[in-house]
Design a protein around this nucleic acid. Structure first.
Lengths: 331, 331
DNA sequence: TTGAAAGCGCTAACAT
DNA sequence: ATGTTAGCGCTTTCAA
């Protein structure tokens, strides 16, 4: 193109301050620079962090924006959202740990949507039908158990909300496996808490809070308990205090997610940290690649978590001295 | 339309499973069922909650979806986002408390975008150029101060992050006014903390944490301090503990926002609660109304906050017995 | 009551 | 190197 033609056009653009219509462009090309993101709820800061990390990278790197949808882990809503996104011309979506049944997602894939599942493993035998980006959740469970065991705990427990996701199941498996391997006298139990409302992820704190009673009433009360996420762990610690016991003196607690806030609560929460930012970036990369190269082969990409040790884990009560309980309330 | 024609069409729709293209529809009608939402960062759970409340209502009530953008309170980013939203054909946007300068927002309004400002007051003399939905922040500040005063505190302080927003300014004004009115021996100071990074809202906790030192070194150390939000308050409490003092025995703390998590931290945080859900719904209502009736007159709508009393506020040290400090660390 | 056609603002393919 | 044109899939208006 000639210099002056270019200048002339530039001038016109400026003068009319012309901005291309995305709608028209999309109608022509069939694509729109938007990525979908389905999370249980943005009110849970761990998903909030994920959303921010994705939005940031998608924008900086590819000029894509992110359309955020809260699914409340509701299958109905989820598939309506998927449909809507397709109607908007969105080409790729990141779906965060829906409950295990994926039929509605497969339907969306059939209709041409590229989907990247977050934190949802694939059954060993099953064929991978779309990308999966996830933390090594078995390792996460294992890290939690090992940390507790290293501190001398023999009676472990793992607290999970009722709704099963694959990531939760894997965490449980890893936790149990590590306890088993520790052998001699180490026992581990799974405590399934009831979720009442469907807005499960907002009530994660209260769920942990209420589970405290259940745990404290067990005949062989555990001295070290892990939870699937930090919100639940924080609620659990509050519940334990409410019953007059303290963390970690009476019961040690380890969470998962390593929320920013977890370092500031009392006691500072020991937690299994997931590399959220890297995972977010990988998901965006994959999503865009799928848009650009239709036939792309689905992959499963796993990231390793690591444990961040703070002060919610200590020695079990009576580790040295003969068993003796401390009823002093924190204050 | 005749019965059978209708049936025939329905049948075709089903058979081809036809779904109208939003892009084409938008190109024709000039509108798209999407609302924009600009927040400092979705990683801050208070904005996460807001986003959820809006998304929920917009979808249920009007069939609109929400496009969430994280601004980091960065003017540059903010206006790029506004431009993008206009290009996408978005008709209305909710903007959460940008720093005071609103020129870029006015530019967007000029270009036909309807904007609803959240938590951003209008200067008394200034003309209202767009909708404003906000909490009565002066009242919020006042409630915090009064609560402290009722518990016998004489030396108050209010902790604010450096970046000025109108809502922060109003909180400060209310706080100061209430202290003033209490008269006799009640003093109040403003402590402005430095924010280092531009990602201010993610680091709110650490900001509170680091401000503890500043507060504890004051010659006439305050016994009751309020903060602009719960994240900062939680960080502050952690900082106070770090220096060997406890909340509320040595220093009482009151936050603002009343995050779900605030009830579960230790000590449970007393906080000024804003009616987020109602505000979110009002904003969506206004946004849609602006889209449907172009000439609509801008309004300023204020919601009253209320104080939720928990355990982070107590009597000042030495209220009964002669001054005596408690150096016991919580545990 | 139904069918036909114009045109929204772009992009891609083609003609100059 | 530049200009022209068809058509993406709808809605709206007008004709039958």
């Amino acid at each position: 193109m000639r210099q002056d033609t270019f200048a002339r056009i530039e001038g016109a653009i400026r003068k009319l301050d012309y901005r291309p219509s995305q709608a028209a462009r999309q109608l022509k090309t069939g694509r729109t620079p938007i990525l979908g993101l389905l999370v249980p709820t943005a009110a849970n800061p761990s998903f909030g962090q994920l959303a921010v990390a994705m939005e940031n990278f998608a924008q900086e790197r590819y000029g894509y924006r992110v359309l955020l949808c809260n699914t409340y882990r509701d299958k109905q809503l989820e598939s309506r959202m998927l449909d809507d996104l397709i109607d908007f011309g969105v080409g790729a979506v990141v779906v965060v740990s829906s409950l295990s049944d994926e039929r509605h997602i497969e339907a969306a894939i059939e209709r041409g949507l590229a989907v990247v599942s977050f934190d949802l493993g694939v059954e060993p035998d099953a064929q991978i039908r779309n990308d999966h980006v996830l933390a090594d959740n078995r390792l996460a469970g294992r890290l939690a158990a090992m940390h507790l065991i290293e501190h001398g705990h023999k009676r472990l427990a793992f607290l999970v909300p009722r709704g099963q996701t694959m990531s939760r199941r894997h965490k449980v498996e890893g936790f149990l496996a590590a306890a088993e391997e520790a052998g001699s006298g180490v026992s581990a139990e799974i405590i399934e808490s009831d979720t009442l409302s469907k807005f499960g992820d907002t009530e994660l704190c209260s769920l942990g809070f209420e589970s405290a009673e259940k745990i404290l009433q067990m005949k062989r009360r555990p001295t070290g308990v892990a939870t699937v996420n930090d919100m639940t762990a924080i609620g659990l610690m509050a519940g334990i205090r409410r019953h007059g016991l303290s963390v970690p003196e009476d019961i040690s607690v380890v969470g998962m997610d390593d929320l920013v806030m977890s370092a500031y609560v009392w006691p500072p929460l020991t937690s299994v940290s997931m590399p959220v930012t890297e995972m977010a970036q990988k998901m965006v990369d994959r999503a865009i690649q799928h848009i650009n190269t239709p036939g792309l082969r689905p992959e499963q990409i796993t990231f390793a978590p690591h444990l961040v040790s703070r002060q919610s884990v200590g020695a079990p009560p009576g580790a040295r001295k003969p068993a003796q309980r401390n009823h002093a309330k924190q204050s």
